[in-house]
Amino acid sequence: MRRMAAGANRTGLIIIGLLLTLGGLAILAIGFGLAEAVVPGLGAQSDLQPVAGVFALPFSALLALVAAIILAVIGLRWLAAQIPRKDAAKPLRLQRDARTGVTTVTANVIAEAVAEDLEATPEVVDAEAILRGSAKQPELVLHVDVDERADIDAVVTDIAQRVTRNCAEALGSPLATVAVEVGIARTKQRRQRSVSL
């Protein structure tokens, strides 16, 4: 239902991998004495004085502080990106001619109606919907919890034939994609106390 930060993780891990690979190659180069060609005196037995010299500069502490702040910001943003998000669509504009006024409806309004419509399906205990995409290319993601004795085929058929049709009718355009996740309700369904004949 919610989107994870897979792309951000891949990018971050690639950057860290590249940095570690470069660091490892540099250490290997120093170990094998290949670095002396680039930095004279930087050999396997050297005391790293040329490298240590960089850290002895008067503004080294300031540089280290700036680098630490940048790394902290990157780290926090990466951490924040791990929070799963709905990525719902932006408010939809559904008017025919904007010169006579605009019609706006949020994705949440549509999603709540779809979920409520879904919950009217017999055997569906709970439902959640997320509308993504745009007004022209709407995408619907559904999660339904059904009763453990439910006929899941019937529930999926009802979603395919009624629920998605209703949503498309409301939006005025066919749904580009519909994803359905079916779960089994863990709690017992509320006992029915009456019946209408």
Binding site: T104, I110, D117, A120, N166, R193, S194, S196
Partner: peptide, 20 residues
């Protein structure tokens, strides 16, 4: 300018406690 604040499904009108 029209802002649609909610949609009321007809199917939900009967409530979930009692089913026809």
């Amino acid at each position: 300018d029209v802002a649609v604040r909610w949609l009321k499904p007809e199917s939900a009108a009967g409530g979930r406690g009692a089913r026809s």
